[in-house]
Amino acid sequence: MLYILFNSISLFFCYILDMKSTSLVKILIGFMFVLCIYFLPSVQYGVGTDYFSYMNIFYDHSQLLYIFKKNEFAFYYFTLFVSSFASFETYIMIIVFIQSVLIFFTIYYLKKKGLASFSILFLTFFCVTNLMHTQMNLIRASFAMYLFAISFIFYADKKQILGVCICLLASLFHASALIVLVFLLLPRRFYILISKNLFFVYTFSFLLFFFAPLDLVLKLLIDTIAPNYSFYFFGGAPSVSFLNILSKVYYVPLHFVLFYLVRKRSIIFTDFQSVLVGMWCLISNVYLLMLSFDFLSRINYFFVFFYLVPISLVLHKFWLCRNRFYFAFWAGFIILPYVIKVIFFPIAEFSYNTYLF
């Protein structure tokens, strides 16, 4: 229930930010928004599965050295520096504050570029991506994910060099960011081409990932050319549940609403939006492969942020057209599963604990 309360207050601040006001008022409300999304995760205790693992890393520098050997130097030196003068609780507070600022900056930039209003972007951000929950568990990966999202936003805004530099910084927090760097090396016109063929690319990838025996093909390939790595890709039971996959399939109807609105030319993408939509469409169905390839769950985490792109566009369109029924219906559609996860089935990161009470 605390999640619902604080996110609702944050959403109210977003609504004020969308209204015309002076720069001073916007700075003040923006600061209040950051504090609001900052508070709960900053005083968490034992949320998720990795909280105590990071506590051990923080106090045991021999474990921290493992991070250094993985070339994740930014996280290593950041943790080493903070541990020299602060407690683990303060360390979490500092991390969460930085992440809250990154969230605010990302949503503000998307709003500034006309993707949707601040309110709609934040609503889809916390309801659809659930990143505000997973960031409490996956600390290193969250730093890298937020930085990758920002890097791609800069890339979409024709600031490719800056985007690449930020993605390289992300890899210093979590080395897996180097894998997704490839998305910043593709030409922008590639994503624009995808945005012009959304329905075909989306449907093709969905059917390919859902029906094609890619796991058998890849396993045969790895067993042939690199058998020593076979266990890394296929060993052990998958950690991603079928329910987790269904929770992502749930949003498919909204995707088809976007395709319909695009076909009717009710939504016409700007150059910036075309690149973002093309990126989303390219990675939109990767989650279907996670049941076969467990390792993809680590990479898919970088893609989750982009789930808000099509849904924000649809909600924003209905709001601008003053079609309040469709807006309310689809807003309720994305809020419902979030409420169920937080109130009725609060497990893992959706179950909140704090050392305050």
Rank of each mutant, 00 (worst) to 15 (best):
L5Y: 13
N7Q: 09
N7T: 02
S8N: 01
F12Q: 08
F13C: 10
C14V: 01
L17T: 05
M19G: 10
S21W: 02
L24V: 12
I27A: 13
M32V: 09
F33V: 08
V34F: 07
P41C: 07
S42L: 09
S42Y: 06
T49G: 00
D50K: 04
Y51D: 01
N56M: 07
F58M: 00
Y59W: 02
Y66S: 09
Y66K: 08
I67Y: 04
I67N: 00
K70Q: 14
A74G: 00
F78P: 13
F78E: 10
A86W: 10
F88G: 02
Y91F: 15
I94D: 04
F97K: 02
I98W: 03
A116T: 06
L123H: 06
T124C: 14
F126V: 05
C127H: 02
M136Y: 03
N137R: 02
M145Q: 06
Y146A: 00
I153M: 07
A156T: 07
G163W: 08
G163L: 12
V164G: 03
C165E: 03
C165P: 05
L169D: 01
A170V: 11
H174D: 03
I179K: 05
I179R: 02
L181W: 08
L184I: 06
L184E: 07
L186W: 04
R188H: 11
Y191Q: 10
S195K: 09
S195G: 04
F204N: 02
D215I: 05
K219G: 14
K219L: 12
I222A: 02
I225V: 11
G236L: 02
G236I: 05
G236T: 05
S239N: 13
V240Y: 11
K248Y: 12
L254W: 13
H255I: 15
H255N: 15
F256D: 06
V257T: 06
Y260P: 12
F269S: 09
Q273C: 05
Q273K: 11
S274C: 06
N285F: 00
Y287L: 03
Y287G: 01
L289Q: 04
M290Q: 13
L291S: 13
L291A: 09
L291Q: 08
Y307S: 14
L308C: 04
H316A: 12
W319F: 14
F325K: 14
F327H: 10
A328G: 07
F333R: 02
V339I: 15
V342Y: 10
E349Y: 03
F350E: 04
S351N: 15
Y352C: 10
Y352G: 06
N353R: 13
F357H: 11
